[in-house]
Design a protein around this nucleic acid. Structure first.
Length: 823
RNA sequence: GCGGGUGUGGCGGAAUUGGCAGACGCGCAGGAUUUAGGAUCCUGUGUCCUAUGGACGUGAGGGUUCAAGUCCCUCCACCCGCACCA
């Protein structure tokens, strides 16, 4: 037993203090040298909101991204691994309202704090590329993109019923409404009629859908499914209906034009202008008004309740079925959505559950047009399956697909309709009535209307928050900044006003990955040449919370940039890794639940490396990690073991490894190979297990094998330091120094794996009789099938296991298996 | 309802093309060393039995195969996403 000396103690705090300043000096992860000959890779972590100290979720996500980034650096790549801050948004503003602090001051202080905490966490970020979205030098280009889109007709203003959060006093995009509640504050969202800015993402619906082919196999299937679902492409037909005593025809969208003969009534969205127009002048006018008011008040939560009975108002109008001239009563109801399709439907209760529910609530007729042997009027269950059509004139006898095609033919020939495609995706509402965001660079002129601020006048800077009332009132505080808001019209010079709204912060994150290329560029959002060199992002790492919003918007922006000729690719993120959440006892950590584990405390107790290691080792990166299953103490134990080995090495740096102990050399090269394979397939937990095996093997070799002077021991420990440098940079660096090397270990380079050392000396061959393992023998890895079979059949154990039975078949799979099947 | 996924020891999890199920770790038990141990090292640890051997064993049931955690069919449970989208 050696007596522990001071230098033999693994002192986490000391190691951290020793190396952080050294790394600052060496900056091993700088990626901006134009003469760097290394091939390029772009590893991107989703940037954080500056919320102060890092928390557990950050710790996991950034540890995972760091493994990938550091791995490619060791493999000789020039890796761009940037970080920045998603710095606009409500929390800064809310803090300002609560505590009277300037949102800008609050934000920059938080950024500084978080940056320091991140540096200590030792992520391999290129600190030269830091960006903050709230810097004018960044949001300048938000405004530039907006203007390009405005000029292309992709940014426009329209009045509509929008999602309104009464708590935040601002509008929300559809994507920000979760189960009828505000994503941020959980308040029930209501509707409000407002004029707002939109980006025409629906123009890109098909491309957003089709380009997913490029991502298949590289993005999680789940994310692709969610996006597909969100885009919600459906095919069907538009059918135009005349309305009795009404001047205009009303068009409906249906995916089942084949059931047109089964239509027994007609429904328009209660909150649509169409319903109002149809009811005008009829005795239903009052009823509709009252009903529509009720509908507007009802929250989406109530509307979505499945228990809810269908409601509606008969509008005292009749629509004429274009194929058979039947009169269909026109109803208004909230089960038809104003902003999907045309806001009106033909109701076929026999074959649509919602229509059937409505028919039964109001005693409307049900007519079967697709045979199924069931009567929906009796069962209460609409049938949507394929079957022969009946009661359908020329469609009788046809199956569903043929009937759909036939009906579309009939409609287009008679001019009553045509094939049509619809999307669930809506245009992206980007204006917000809040202060802390990118001002929308538009001037409203009484004569010229909406005029883009000339590009040379950008950025339109946010006015100082001083003197502004930031508390939410439903109108942007910028409107009150009169001096800021009053400007001459850029076109005619007349007195005009700036648009008072700011942009959704998702605009910032839709292109920030391009800004990292050259974050301080003043004459453009990014350098197209650099984009050609670095983009698209090779590996994107972030939470599944952004599976729809952020990723869809980024994909949209990329396609717009492609159309503008700014980039030569159509998808921004080649590979996507969604890390799981860190939970505690099965549920999300939160202060209110009382199960919050403070990262700062854990780091203080166990050190950065142990936390990173424990977290990455806990399971596959995409799975949730339960802190209860994470063992920082175990991780620290391993690190100390590995670290102590560095002190045991008793050979000089540069010693010739090839003369070293062969079994240990093989273990080393096996470990290098296996970790390489594991890391490249995201199995970081497995990579750590392989490193642990190597440490165990080395310990054994030192204590009871070849001994500490053997060159193989040095080779093994150096390999260990390099492998664990991906996960635990402090310990790895200290080991590297103890081994007599210069920092940084991060740039040591991955040792060349010798394929000859991957061949085992002998392989355990399993001998089965009737499929059951009876014996194991050690054989040479290149044993021939003949020799192996011959040997095995003569083994006494085999003969006795056969128990006199004749041999039927012998399956030989050298060198791993022989299976003897009795006749 | 639709879509995506998961199911392996006390726990987290391993397992190229079908070929030794349970790597690695946590926990637990025993031992060594120690003034001490929340340090270090060693050993053991799927279940059951008639125990130097054997049987069983990857959510359940069936199938293909010499051989199935892995492939096919049926079912169950759980998690996530979407959900009046015509």
């Amino acid at each position: 037993m050696r007596m522990p000396r001071m230098s033999e103690t693994y002192d986490v705090t000391q190691i951290q203090q020793r190396w952080l300043p050294v790394w600052d000096e060496l900056a091993p992860f700088r990626s901006g040298d134009p003469n760097d000959p290394r091939p390029k890779k772009y590893v991107l972590d989703m940037f954080p909101y500056p919320s102060g100290d890092l928390h557990m979720g950050h710790a996991e996500a950034y540890a995972l991204g760091d493994v990938v980034a550091r791995y490619w650096v060791q493999q000789g790549f020039n890796v761009m691994h940037p970080i920045g801050w998603d710095a606009f948004g409500l929390p800064a503003e809310n803090a300002a309202i609560r505590n009277g602090i300037d949102p800008m001051k609050w934000t920059y202080e938080n950024i500084e704090q978080q940056k320091a905490s991140m540096r200590r966490y030792a992520c391999s970020f290129d600190w030269d590329r830091v960006l903050n979205t709230c810097d004018p030098e960044f949001y300048h280009w938000n405004q530039w993109f907006f203007i390009q889109m405005f000029k292309r007709g992709l940014a426009y203003r329209k009045a509509s019923n929008v999602n309104w959060c009464p708590e935040c006093q601002t509008v929300l995009a559809n994507e920000q409404v979760v189960a009828g509640a505000c994503e941020r504050c959980d308040t029930v969202v209501t509707k409000k009629k407002l004029t707002q800015w939109y980006l025409r993402i629906t123009d890109y619906a098909d491309r957003l859908l089709n380009d997913m082919q490029q991502l298949e196999g590289y993005w999680p299937e789940k994310v692709l499914a969610m996006q597909r679902n969100w885009i919600g492409r459906s095919t069907g037909a538009q059918v135009s209906f005349q309305i009795e005593d009404y001047p205009e025809a009303v068009t409906v969208y249906t995916t089942r034009p084949d059931t047109l003969y089964g239509a027994t009534f007609f429904v328009v969205a209660a909150d649509s202008p169409l319903a109002e127009a149809l009811a005008a002048g009829t005795s239903a006018e009052e009823d509709l008004y009252r009903y529509a008011e009720e509908v507007k008040k009802a929250s989406d939560i109530d509307r979505l309740s499945t228990e809810r009975k269908k409601s509606g108002v008969f509008l005292q109008r009749y629509a004429i079925n274009p194929v058979n001239g039947e009169r269909l009563p026109v109803w208004a109801s909230d089960y038809v959505l104003a902003d999907y399709g045309t806001g009106a439907v033909m109701a076929v209760p026999a074959h649509d559950q919602r229509d059937l529910d409505f028919a039964q609530a109001f005693n409307l007729p049900v007519r079967v047009v697709v045979e199924s042997g069931e009567d929906p009027a009796e069962t209460g269950i609409a049938t949507a399956d394929d079957g022969p059509h009946v009661n359908s004139g020329p469609l009788d006898g046809l199956n569903k697909d043929d009937a759909i095609a036939a009906m579309i033919d009939i409609l287009s020939q008679t001019g009553h309709g045509d094939a049509s495609v619809n999307y669930r995706l809506r245009d992206w509402l980007i204006s917000r009535q809040r202060y802390w965001g990118t001002p929308i660079p538009i001037v409203h002129c009484p004569d010229c209307g909406e005029v883009a601020v000339p590009e040379e006048e950008l950025p339109v800077r946010l006015p100082s928050a001083e003197g502004l009332d930031l508390s939410p009132k439903g109108a942007s505080p910028l409107g009150a900044a009169t001096e800021w808001a009053s400007v001459p019209c850029p076109q005619c010079g007349a007195d005009a006003v700036r648009d008072p709204d700011t942009m959704d912060t998702f605009v910032d994150s839709s292109w920030y990955y391009l800004r990292y290329l050259d974050p301080h560029k003043t004459d453009g959002p990014f350098d197209p040449d650099l984009a050609r060199e670095w983009m698209p992002v090779d590996q994107y790492v972030g939470g599944v919370t952004h599976a729809i919003l952020h990723l869809l918007y980024s994909r949209f922006f990329t396609k717009v940039a492609y159309d503008m000729g700014l980039v030569d690719f159509t998808e921004p993120f080649t590979r996507l890794l969604n890390q799981g959440m860190v939970v505690m006892d099965g549920s999300a950590m939160s202060k209110s639940r009382g199960n919050l584990v403070k990262l700062t405390d854990e780091l203080a107790e166990h050190g950065v490396d142990a936390i990173r290691l424990a977290m990455v080792f806990a399971g596959p990166p995409e799975d949730d990690v339960d802190w209860a299953d994470v063992s920082p103490a175990g991780a620290k134990k391993f690190l100390a073991r590995a670290w102590r080995l560095a002190g045991d090495v008793a050979s000089q740096p540069g010693v010739d490894f090839t003369t070293g102990d062969l079994p240990l050399r093989k273990a080393t090269h096996r470990a290098l190979h296996d970790t390489q394979v594991a890391v490249e397939s995201y199995r970081f937990n497995v990579a750590i297990a392989k490193a642990m095996e190597l440490v165990n093997a080395t310990r054994k070799a030192v204590d009871s094998g070849c001994g500490p002077t053997d060159p193989a021991v040095r080779e093994a420990v150096e390999a260990t330091a390099i492998i664990i440098s991906l996960i635990t940079p402090y310990t790895a660096e200290d080991m590297w120094a103890r081994l007599g090397h210069q920092p940084p270990v991060a740039r040591a380079g991955w040792p060349q794996v010798d394929p000859q050392l991957l061949v085992a000396d002998s392989v355990t061959c399993v001998i089965q009789v009737a499929g059951k393992v009876r014996e194991r023998i050690e054989v040479s890895p290149d044993v021939t099938a003949e020799d192996l079979q011959d040997h095995v059949l003569h083994m006494p154990e085999v003969i006795s296991a056969l128990d006199g039975a004749a041999i039927g078949r012998v399956i030989v799979r050298p060198p791993k298996l022989v299976n003897i099947v009795p006749a």
